[in-house]
């Protein structure tokens, strides 16, 4: 990863602010937009993956147990996964961090 954006000076910016490293949006921490975060009760989870399909950020991945979990580096806390989950595994709670 390149240096954090708050350490960039004007001299570090490429001409015309052109981005020369394709795909570097992966470094963009959209997780800090979050005001709510998902909490899971996996006892009910049927491992259908509907939450991952609906996630607009594409940040929900299946873990070793087969459950679907959001990557908090990217999760914006939109709550679509909680709305779409057919068995109410996910509830949105206030982000305090």
């Amino acid at each position: 990863m390149v240096k954090p954006e708050n350490e960039f000076t004007w001299r570090d910016i490429e001409i015309g602010a052109i981005v020369t490293t394709p795909g570097n949006a992966i470094q963009y921490r959209t997780g800090d937009w979050r005001s709510q975060k998902p909490e899971y009760i996996f006892d009910r989870c049927i491992k259908c993956g509907v939450c991952a399909i609906y996630c607009p950020e594409g940040c929900i991945n299946q873990n070793e147990e087969g459950h679907f979990v959001a990557d908090m580096y990217y999760c914006k806390g939109c709550g679509i996964c909680a709305t779409e989950c057919p068995v109410y595994v996910i509830s949105m709670v206030e982000e305090v961090e």
């Binding site: 954006e5 708050n6 960039f8 000076t9 004007w10 570090d12 910016i13 490429e14 001409i15 015309g16 602010a17 052109i18 981005v19 020369t20 394709p22």
Partner: peptide, 25 residues
């Protein structure tokens, strides 16, 4: 032009800048 649009060396032009970098730009 030093950084032209070309498939051999892809670049992204006209991206967005959050507040943390806009002043520097």
């Amino acid at each position: 032009y030093p950084l032209p649009l070309h498939p051999d060396k892809p670049v992204a032009m006209g991206d967005f800048a959050p507040p943390v970098i806009f002043s520097e730009a």
